[in-house]
C-alpha cells in the first residue's frame, strides 16, 4: 500500500502545476524585491548598486520601526480577536434555532470590498456628523473624541474596523471546521452528561486545533502585511500615527520615488513574517505531532 501513495510521478503531477505558478509569480518577485532593495533606484531611471545601504538605513529608520510596532500591535490584536470569532462560531455550531441564518448574516461584511468598508467606517468615525459621535452625544458625552484625527485613538479605531472586516473570514473557517466534527463524538459526550460549554472546550476545540493554528498564522501574517483600510481611511496619518509596514513600503516605493528603499522595506516585511511564523510554529507544535 505504501507504494501507491509514494508514486513519484503522481506526486509531481499533483504539486508541479501549483509549484511552477508560485515559483514564477511569487518567488521571482520576492527575489526581485530583495534585489531592488540593494539598489538606489527611483523606479524610473538607472539603478545604482549600493549593497546593503538600504537595509542598514532601515535599521536606523525610526519611521520603519514605528510602522513595524504598529503592525505588531495589529497582529497581536487580530490574534486575540480569534478567541471572539471562535466563541461565536462555537455558539452558532450548536443546534440553536436560526443559527444557520445567523451564521450567513455574520459573514455578509466579508463580501463588501474594502472601498465600501472604508467608507462605512469613515462615516462611523466622522467627528461631527458620524454615527459613533451622534450616539455618544445622545448619551450626553461632551467633547466627543475625534477618532481618526487623534494620534492616540487612530490605531485602535482602525483595528476595530479591521477586526470587524475579518470576522466573516474566520467565522466561516471555524464553522466549516466545526461542521466536520462527527456528530457521534458530540453525542457521546452529551450522554456522559457534559454541558455545551464542556463539549465545546473538551471535545470540539481539541478536534479543530489544527485549524486554529492555521488561523493564528493567517491572522499574524495577514496583519503584518495589512494595507487596505489603513491606506484608505488615514493614509497612515496623522503624521505617521497609523503607519504600518505595508503602507510605509507603498509610500516609499510609489509616492516618494524611493523604489529601492521601498523594496528593502518589503523584503524586511517578508523576513519578519518568516521569523514570526517560525516562532509560532515552534510554540504551537510543541505538544502535538501535527505539523503544518
Amino acid at each position: 500500500m505504501k507504494q501507491v501513495m509514494s508514486n513519484k510521478l503522481i506526486i509531481a503531477m499533483y504539486t508541479l502545476p501549483a509549484l511552477i505558478l508560485i515559483l514564477a509569480l511569487v518567488y521571482v518577485p520576492i527575489v526581485m524585491t530583495g534585489y531592488y532593495g540593494l539598489m538606489e533606484w527611483d523606479g524610473i531611471g538607472a539603478k545604482t548598486f549600493i549593497g546593503l545601504e538600504n537595509y542598514i538605513g532601515l535599521m536606523q529608520d525610526a519611521k520603519f520601526w514605528d510602522s513595524a510596532y504598529h503592525s505588531f500591535l495589529l497582529a497581536a490584536f487580530s490574534t486575540l480577536s480569534l478567541v471572539g470569532y471562535l466563541v461565536i462560531s462555537l455558539v452558532l455550531a450548536n443546534k440553536l434555532k436560526g443559527s444557520e441564518l445567523l451564521r450567513k448574516i455574520y459573514l455578509i461584511p466579508m463580501l463588501l470590498s474594502s472601498v465600501a468598508i472604508a467608507q462605512l467606517w469613515l462615516k462611523i468615525y466622522d467627528p461631527n456628523n458620524g454615527m459613533l459621535n451622534s450616539l455618544l452625544e445622545i448619551f450626553g458625552v461632551e467633547n466627543t473624541p475625534t477618532w481618526l484625527a487623534d494620534p492616540k485613538l487612530v490605531l485602535i479605531s482602525i483595528f476595530i474596523a479591521i477586526i470587524w472586516q475579518y470576522a466573516g473570514f474566520y467565522i466561516i473557517i471555524y464553522s466549516a471546521a466545526l461542521k466536520g466534527i462527527p456528530e457521534s463524538l458530540v453525542e457521546a459526550a452529551r450522554i456522559d452528561g457534559a454541558n455545551p460549554i464542556q463539549i465545546a472546550y473538551k471535545v470540539k476545540l481539541p478536534l479543530i486545533a489544527g485549524v486554529i493554528k492555521v488561523t493564528i498564522v493567517l491572522a499574524i501574517v495577514g496583519s503584518l502585511k495589512y494595507f487596505d483600510l489603513i491606506y484608505v481611511m488615514t493614509g497612515g496619518g496623522p503624521n505617521g500615527a497609523s503607519e504600518v509596514l505595508a503602507s510605509y513600503m507603498y509610500k516609499e516605493a510609489f509616492a516618494s520615488y524611493n523604489f529601492g528603499y521601498g523594496s528593502a522595506v518589503g523584503f524586511a516585511l517578508l523576513v519578519i513574517c518568516l521569523i514570526i511564523t517560525w516562532l509560532v510554529r515552534k510554540l504551537t507544535a510543541s505538544n502535538e505531532e501535527i505539523q503544518y
Partner: peptide
C-alpha cells in the same frame, strides 16, 4: 515554499 507565498506584500510584487 507555499507558506512563504502568504507573506509577500502585493505592492512590492507589482513592478
Amino acid at each position: 515554499l507555499f507558506m512563504v507565498g502568504l507573506m509577500v506584500p502585493i505592492h512590492s510584487a507589482l513592478i
